[in-house]
Design a protein around this nucleic acid. Structure first.
Lengths: 343, 343
DNA sequence: TTGGGTTATTAGATCGATCTAATCGTAGCG
DNA sequence: CGCTACGATTAGATCGATCTAATAACCCAA
């Protein structure tokens, strides 16, 4: 009664004996190697469905030294910007036969280390990471690692990188607001420890200069890059004198928080005050938010491409892909209303 | 010149020969088996750091028939409710030494099938899933699968399940609104194809009945479960006559959209109209939204526990964990304002 | 001194696939 | 008829760990 044993995994050997061929032939069929005779292939395929065979990728990985898995580490999964990047990367890599293993650090360096270790052990073929705030300068432990690492959104020296031209993005926003007549423009920023925040701030300053608007230190508000930060930041900015008539925000989530602050002071965005966001997440579209489009999906795809390339050519020179942002004009911005604030 | 070869992976054999012991001993050290002599253990550990050994989990998995990986499939990663569940599950499983492989279906059944296949092949030890809308009744292909599957948020017959008592949740909301004097309460619902939407609707009706409020068909608005749906749903509800003075929403995202609709009709939530959400996501806290707390983190942990248990005891009876929701009162609800609407 | 009983270590098989190199059959060709 | 060439198939080694069962080393009691 050998057949009665509840052998619970069907393997190549089972298929082979059922179809009357060898393990090797079954493997050839699975991989669609053309050298198999049509009749044999058919017989094998029948056995496969008959026995309910499930491919064991892990075993194959061990032999081929390729896992067809990549790790994706983001710094805040609750931020729709990252959620959209995740979707894009999963779709992109999924279509090329890769599995994505996701990790979230919540901006926690220790978690990031754990994830990196775990992914290297797995092992994955490569890692896509948006590094936590501290890790960009720190230790350099990201460059030259065994599973190659590609950074996105936040550059790391020595690593391939996909991101957006933050400086140009802020300038776009300022140019537009200046053209609308705004002279007092606040910058509701993210933490200055983030390179993207630094760059966007730089673009803000350059933009002001270019448009002949004088820089006012107190119009720059550093806040956490979330809804609450935007609310508090704009609330604070509104108390200043002369009050700003417009604001550029670190990202869309911050901008949406800022809009809430406006409304709770009975100001209508677009009519009484102009707000520009950054990233163009889905909510921005619906919320009528004018924003600097950094197309998260494109960043994700670019990063994935960089990683695939590096997996294929581990020693190729480091590359950086800097995408050009564009301004999406919606209802949250308008010409400065005449009586809004004295110049 | 054998040592010059760029052998690029350090394995147990390398450690063994460096430390002058056998593969098996190194393995014992790695797994912290106590039978190893302290001196030997020390020597092995030194070789490990010296040679920069990285554990190869995949190889171990093949032998032990356990991957210590679980698959997590959500239906919409851009929804903060799921993002919070994801974080909870990752933290929980991560602390027990599991790796989480995430997949997102965007409510797409075909994607879900692809993900299930990919995860089974990997292979993972188990799968946590919030099934897409169509798949709950369909095919029954989820129950009795080889990697055990646990559902959350949306029950599937024959599967372990962790979720919240949606009926009781809606009732809580209605009880509270009724106590505040509201007589015309709208229900801005999710798609009726979702079991959770059905249950919440049921709770709405039961709640009305219990509080002696007559049910009005036209106060029930079916909408997509996102910000836009909430906006459109409430905008539509406001045109009715007699107009509602309060609304229960399918979830917090819908509720936040509804609040936007209120504001763009110059109504202030809490003062002119009461809104109750569902889930208690982080944004609800900040946005001052009264909501039915379903504690996503708790759902995630409960689901993870169910899965761990099933992995250990594959043939144990199916279990369902139904968490009890509670109402979190914030500023978006208030006593019905006297002149708001005729009874 | 010797046998029994620990304790520490190890050789060899194993997980389920793939790869290499060899083999078998047979068709083509001079 | 014999030799090559080629297409189809396969045996056996291999990836890097773990497991089993056996062995080596050692201490202590009789």
């Amino acid at each position: 009664m050998i057949e009665a044993s509840p052998k619970d995994r069907v393997t190549l050997v089972d298929i082979a004996s059922d179809a009357g061929v060898s393990r090797a032939t079954v493997s050839l069929v699975l991989r669609n190697v053309p050298s198999v005779a049509p009749a044999t292939r058919k017989r094998v395929l029948q056995s496969i469905t008959k026995l309910g065979y499930v491919y064991h990728r892990g075993a194959a990985n061990l032999r081929t030294q390729r896992s067809h898995a990549i790790g994706l580490i983001v710094s805040d999964i609750t931020n729709p910007f990252f959620a959209e990047i995740i979707i894009a990367i999963e779709d992109w890599l999924g279509s090329t036969g890769f599995v994505t293993i996701l990790g979230n650090t919540s901006e926690n360096l220790e978690k990031q280390q754990r994830l990196l270790k775990s992914l290297s052990e797995y092992p994955v073929d490569g890692i896509l990471i948006c590094p936590t705030q501290g890790s960009i300068t720190g230790a350099g432990s990201l460059a030259g690692r065994r599973p190659p690492v590609v950074a996105f959104t936040r550059p790391v020296s020595g690593l391939d990188y996909a991101g957006v031209d933050n400086v140009a993005g802020s300038e776009l926003a300022i140019d537009y607001l200046a053209a609308l007549g705004h002279q007092h423009i606040a910058f509701i920023g993210g933490p200055s420890s983030l390179s993207s925040a630094q760059q966007r701030f730089l673009g803000y300053r350059l933009g002001l200069e270019k448009n002949g608007i004088s820089f006012r230190e107190n119009l720059v508000v550093e806040q956490a890059p979330n809804r609450k930060g935007g609310f508090q930041g704009l609330t604070a900015a509104l108390t200043l004198s002369p009050a700003p008539t417009a604001a550029v925000c670190f990202n869309d989530v911050v901008a949406l928080g800022a809009i809430e602050a406006l409304r709770s002071s009975s100001k209508e965005p677009g009519r009484d005050f102009s707000i520009v966001g950054f990233n163009n997440i889905a909510d921005a579209h619906f919320g009528g938010l004018t924003t600097v489009d950094t197309s998260p999906a494109k960043i994700g795809e670019a990063a994935a491409d960089l990683l695939l390339h590096r997996i294929k050519e581990p020693t190729s020179p480091v590359r950086q892909v800097i995408l050009t942002p564009r301004l999406i004009v919606r209802e949250s911005t308008a010409r400065r209303s005449p009586g809004s604030s004295p110049d």
